[in-house]
């Protein structure tokens, strides 16, 4: 098995773990970490597809996408953590529940 195939399989595994954890974990903090694992899977897949038969060198476009993606993901995670922290300080709440109407 070639290296990029290993990467791709691990990427799908991370994606699945992250997705399951977002729904299964209860605490805000764990949910936010789960989205990071999910994102790690996506970025690893992007890195792995940089090796392509048609090219002799690694394709730079996926790398550019990963860099952009990481910046976006870091900002989103920082925002989510700030929100979770503020909720904790305001009400002591660290998980969803009670306010659900849907």
């Amino acid at each position: 098995m070639e290296t990029h195939e290993v990467y791709a399989i691990v990427a799908v595994g991370l994606f699945a773990i992250g997705l399951a954890a977002v729904f299964l974990c209860e605490r805000f903090f764990k949910k936010i970490i789960a989205t990071k694992i999910l994102g790690g899977g996506v970025f690893l897949l992007l890195v792995s597809i940089a090796e392509r038969d048609a090219l002799e060198f690694a394709d730079p476009v996926p790398h550019a996408m990963v860099i952009t993606g990481i910046v976006v993901a870091v900002s989103a995670a920082a925002f989510a953590l700030a929100l979770a922290r503020r909720i904790r300080l305001q009400s002591g709440q660290d998980r969803f529940g009670g306010e659900d109407d849907a």
Partner: peptide, 18 residues
């Protein structure tokens, strides 16, 4: 309530865009 709803919205949005 807005903050909690917002965090739920944000988590859904992150998963959706990923």
């Amino acid at each position: 309530p807005a903050m909690v709803a917002g965090l739920r919205y944000l988590l859904a949005a992150i998963v959706g865009s990923l």
